[in-house]
Amino acid sequence: MPDRSDHTQATLRQSLQGWLWVAPALLFLVVFVYGPALTNIRFSMFSFSAMSLDWDFVGLNNYLRLWNDPKFMTALTNNAIYAAISVTCQVGVALVLAAVLEARVFPNFSANLFRTALFLPSILPVVVVGLVWQLLLTPTTGLIDQILWETGLASWSRAWLGEPDTAIFAVIFVSQWQWTGYIMALFMVAIRAVPRDLYEAMEIDGASGVQQFWHITVPGVRETILIVTIITILGSLKVFDIVWVMTAGGPNHSSEVLGTMMYRAAFRDDMIGYSSTIATVIFFIALTIGLVQIKLQKDR
C-alpha cells in the first residue's frame, strides 16, 4: 500500500504529533504484551514457587529439564498434529467447500442456509462447545455412542476422550467442527473478489469445475490461503481452552499440549520458573512462524 505521507523525512515537531497519536496503543502493547513476554524469559532462568518468596537462579537448567521431560515431547507432537490436521481441514476442506458454495451449484437460498449452518459453531464459546461435546462423547450414554450402537457400528464404540490413543484426536475433531465453517466463510468472501469473467472465460473453453478450482480459485485467493494457514498454525500453537475443558491434558498426560503443560506447571504443580520456560519455548516458536510469514509475504 503506497503511503501518501512518506515522501519526506518528518521533522521532530511533526513526529511528535504522530507519536502522540500512536502512543496509547503502543503503551498497551508494551505494558501488557511485550514487557511481560520479555520478563517471562527472565523468569525461566529461576526456580521458584508461588508459595515461598525464595528465587533460585538456575540458569538454563529449566530448559535442560524440559528437554528431558517426556511430557514435553508429547505436548510438542500434539501441537504439531493439531496444526497439521487443522491446516488440512480449515484450509484445504474449507476452501473446497467455499468454492462449491460460490460455484452456484445450489440455489441461493440453500447455499445461504448451508453457510449459516456451517458457520454456526464458530460463534459459540469454546468452553460451551467443549462441555457439550464432552457430553456427546460420553461412553454408553452419550449421543455418539448411541448412534454407533443403533447403526450396527458398536465395535467402533469407545471412550473417545478416555483413551490415550484417541483423546487428542477427539479434541482436534471438535476444534475442526467449530472452525471449518468460519474459515469457509472467509474463503467465500475472498472468492467473491476474484473477477467473475475469468470463470466465464474458462467455462466457454469447456473447463470442468475442478479445473476452474485449480486454475482460477486457488491462485486467486493465494494471499488468503497464506494468511489463513499462518493463523491456523499459530492458533494450534497456542491452543489451550478446548483441551483444558475437554481432557485437561489427560488421560495420563496423553493429550497434553504446550499451553496446558504450562498452565499445569504454574498453577497446579507450583513450579513457576519451569512454567515460564515452557512459555518461552512457545514464544520462540511463535516468533519463528511470524518471521516465516513475513518472509513468505515479501517473496511474493
Binding site: 502493547l29 513476554a37 500453537l237 504454574a266 518461552t280 516468533l287
Partner: peptide, 12 residues
C-alpha cells in the same frame, strides 16, 4: 503483537 499468544505473557 498478533503473533504472540497470551500464554507467553500470562505469568508475568
Amino acid at each position: 503483537g498478533a503473533i504472540l499468544p497470551p500464554e507467553v505473557s500470562l505469568i508475568p
